[in-house]
Every structure is written in C-alpha cells, then in structure tokens.
Design a protein around this nucleic acid. Structure first.
Length: 448
RNA sequence: GCGGUCGUAGCUCAGUAGGUAGAGCACCUGGUUGUGGUCCAGGCUGUCGCGGGUUCAAAUCCCGUCGAUCGCCCCA
C-alpha cells in the first residue's frame, strides 16, 4: 500500500438531506416514541411501504409538477424495457392508496393506520424545507362511507401529539371545509377553482388588498372578489352544542347545498373538538390546501409562539375517494400528516434550549473500570444494574479517573458508578449533576 | 426552474496600496499519587471551494465553474 498519496474526499453534507449528531438524534427518537404511543393509544396500527413506487403509480393522479426523484441502476441496459421506472415517493398518501387497493380483501375497515417514513421532494431547501424528510401520517379509510366524527378524531390525535412534543410553542390547528368556499365559487360561476385557491392561500402572506388584485387579474369581478374575501377572512367559532350561524359568522347565507353542507360539517367537527384547550383548534376559512385531492375538512397547523416560521407543520384533510385510480371501490378517507423533520428543524433553529438537546448517550450510568483485575467484577455489576432496568455503559479502558469522569460529563451520563477498586471494598455512585458521591448496593440502588 | 448574497482551520470569523495565513471556541497533553464541569501552561489542525488568466509574485485583481444560503414557485 502506498502511503505517499492517499486520496481524501472532503466530507460534505448534501443540502436538503439532514443528519444529526447523537444528542439531536436522541431527541428525535423521543419524538418518534411519543408520536407512536399517541397514535397507538387510539388503536391505529403501523404499516410501512417501500421507499419506491412505480412512476406510473405516483403519477396516476395527474398533477406531477412535484419534483420527483427516480431510482435507476447506474449500469442499466438502455434496451431493457422490462423494468418499470421507479420513483421515490413524495408523500405517504399515494403509497397508502396503492396499499389499500393491493390488500383490499385482507384489510379490516375502517382501516386506521399510521406511517412514519421518509419522503423525497426535489425542491430547493430552505428553513423547514428539505429534500429528504420524515412525515408521520395518520389516516382512516372506509368503504363507501366514512363517518364525519373521524374528521374530529384525527385532529384531536394530532393536537395531543403536538402538545406532547412542542406544547410550549403553542401549536394551533386551523380547520376549514372546502365545500364552503367551493360552493361559493360555484355560485359565482368560477369553473376552475385551482388558480383562485392558490391566490387565497397567499392571504396571510400578502394581505387582503393584493389578494383582491390577483383575483381580479384572474377575471373575478371586484364584487365577487369581495365576497370571497369576506368568507375566507372569517374566523367563526363554536362552543359546545352551538351551531355555527352562517349569516353572522360567515357574513353571508349559504348560496347552495354544497356550501350549506360544508358549514354543517365544519360546525360538527368544531363541536366535537370543543373539549380541547382554548386556541388549540380554530376555524379558518382561508385554509384551502391548494390543488390537493381534498374534498371536505382541511387542516393546517401553526406554531403561535414561533414567529420566525409561519408555514404549516402538519396538514391534511378529507378525500372522497382515496384509491379510485387503483381499484373499483369507493374509499373515502381522512388523515393528517405531521411534517416531522420540518417541525424538528424549525424548533432546533428557533428554540434549541427548549428541546432538551444535551445528552449524547442514552446511558443512565457509566461504569468505571478501575483496573484490569476488576474488569469482570465491574462487568458483573453492570449486568446487575441492566437487569434492574438501567442503561449502563462500561468504560473501555482502565484509564485515569479524570478521563473517565470527563467522558461521562461530555456524554451527559447522569451517574458514574465506582465498583470496588479492590475486593471487599464498597461500591460508590456519583451524581454528576451535584457532585455528591455515596456508597451504594447494585441490587438495591435507585436513581434519584 | 428564476432572482439576491456568500465561499479562509471541526465551528464562528479576521486577514486590500497583491509578497504563499491568523484569532476565539472546540480538540489533545500536563498541573504527580483513585474523580468531571473553572483556572493556568503547552500542543495539533488549512490543496485560503475548484479551474484558468493578469503579475517577478494572488487568499487578495479578472473570467469561468461548483457549492452553500435567502427569496420566488411549490409545499410538510
């Protein structure tokens, strides 16, 4: 082996593909644990689908202006057309649709599942926007008809999840129902709602006046634009048992059945969520969710105490027919997706102190290795403590105690255990937080 | 995909009449004998993003290129 010219590739992170140090990863893992436990406490089961789907599956819905990564072999044979083109999924809804269609006869409906996986989107990274990131989706799918109360259940679950991990940032779910706005747009004769909804989506960012201008440039009359703005600016509330009054809360009476239906559904969902704390859930008619497949309830979520980031950290809604492209069944569903990596990244950048990042080891105890002669005894002590449920790391070499203590300090291990340095001596434990050290029995000691 | 800004040690950066590099933090060692976080002393670390040009000479000027970052688009 020649030692004069060793080729070194300078390590670099790839933009938009985040990776964390152990201390941050530990917090991330805690978040996953919490999310999983809340999801499961409502009886939702876990599934995982492959990272790739056939490109045709992903683009079955049309709308493929999302940047999709494709996967192919470097040495693929150009002549070989037998392999379908594979694409990394950009969300978990499309894979879910395929999965449900695939296993339709084996699944039990209503099918309630959660899914925590990475997704990929070829976009330009920014704060809270990555090219590879985790989403935690929770959805319910049923055959033919899905009761509206699930629209409230998934929202309640999501609030519980967020309250547990970022409660201090005041998460707020904003809920609307697309039927209300779509009903209005239909009544004023707008055929293609997509451009209009895109403009409305910008309301919070650019304000009423600019939205009105953009609407008029789309051919909406100023009178109609005003009606639209009146509607989407309204923030109706409802208490327990109270039904949302259209004429006062929305500033107008329903123009058609669709609008009326939307109002009733939204009222019901809000009513079902009235047990949540003040401000946890609000109605916000400006939530329209762009061009997605949503047909009824729609959700977005904001962190009220994080003014640096105004985007949504979890979004979702109800769709009439999830898997119509893959199976000849009518499968309505409702679900929400937590933008896990976005949430983590935003909180990491804006409130690092609140996340509890610090420890670089999951260990509760560092077992000191006094000398080689005591290695087996120290190892036995560690085993005893592990059997009692403690996470114990053995120090690897009989180095100076100064080094062993400094190691525990740097890794954030809260206790250092000193086994006997000679046979017959006592065990001692040091509490690194306050420096106190006392004798202890491995089979009886309890962490303070 | 479009526009703005920026690229010097692991990190944050300094370094213009052009003369082949510095600070702080971090890291390592020591301050003797079985104990961390402070302090003191010492030490390690760079193809100055990459390529070309001007020049006796370029981190410093010019061109190109790549990368990063912010905004737009879009969205978790």
């Amino acid at each position: 082996m020649s030692d004069d010219k060793k080729k070194i590739y300078k390590p670099k992170v790839i933009s938009g593909f985040p990776e964390w140090l152990p201390a941050e990863r530990m917090v991330e893992q805690k978040w996953f644990d919490h999310i999983r436990s809340v999801f499961e406490s409502y009886g939702y089961c876990s599934i995982e689908t492959p990272s790739v789907e056939e490109l045709d599956v992903i683009s079955a819905k049309g709308e493929v202006d999302k940047e999709i990564y494709v996967l192919e072999r470097l040495h693929k044979d150009d002549e070989d057309k037998s392999e379908a083109r594979l694409a990394l999924h950009f969300d978990q809804t499309v894979p879910l649709a395929r999965y449900v269609a695939q296993h339709f006869n084996e699944l039990i409906f209503p099918f309630k599942r959660y899914q925590m996986q990475r997704v990929w989107r070829g976009e330009r990274p920014q704060m809270g926007r990555m090219r590879e990131f985790y989403q935690c989706d929770i959805d319910v799918i049923n055959v033919d008809h899905l009761p509206i109360h699930f629209d409230a259940e998934v929202a309640a679950i999501i609030y519980e999840v967020l309250d547990g991990i970022v409660g201090f940032a005041k998460p707020q779910l904003r809920i609307s129902n697309r039927k209300i706005l779509m009903g209005l747009l239909e009544s004023i004769g707008i055929e293609d709602p997509v451009p209009v909804t895109r403009i409305i989506d910008k309301l919070e960012k650019i304000g009423k006046q600019d939205v009105a201008k953009l609407l008029e440039s789309e051919g909406v009359t100023s009178n109609d634009a005003e009606q639209i703005l009146t509607l989407v600016s309204s923030r109706p509330t409802t208490g327990s048992g109270e039904i949302l009054d259209p004429s006062t809360a929305l500033g107008m009476t329903p123009k058609n059945d669709q609008m009326q239906e939307g109002i009733e559904e939204l009222s019901f969902v809000l009513d079902q969520l009235s047990h949540l704390p003040e401000g946890a859930v609000v109605a916000d008619l400006s939530i329209v969710r762009g061009l997605d497949y949503y047909t009824g309830t729609v959700y977005e979520t904001q962190l009220l105490d994080v003014p640096e980031f105004t985007g949504s950290v979890c979004s979702g809604g109800r769709y009439d027919d999830l898997a119509g492209s893959y199976i000849n069944k009518h499968l309505p569903g409702v679900g929400i997706s937590i933008g896990f990596s976005r949430l983590f990244d935003v909180m990491r950048q804006t409130h690092p102190d609140k996340l509890g990042i610090g420890r670089s080891s999951p260990a509760d105890i560092l077992m000191v290795l006094p000398n080689e002669e005591q290695r087996e005894a120290a190892s036995a002590t560690a085993r005893t403590l592990r059997e009692r449920g403690y996470k114990v790391e053995m120090y690897h070499a009989p180095q100076k105690l100064k080094k062993q203590l400094a190691y525990a300090e740097r890794k954030g291990i809260p206790y250092v255990w000193f086994p006997p340095f000679e046979d017959g001596q006592e065990h001692e434990v040091k509490d690194m937080a306050n420096g106190e050290q006392a004798s202890a029995d491995p089979s009886a000691w309890v962490a303070g």
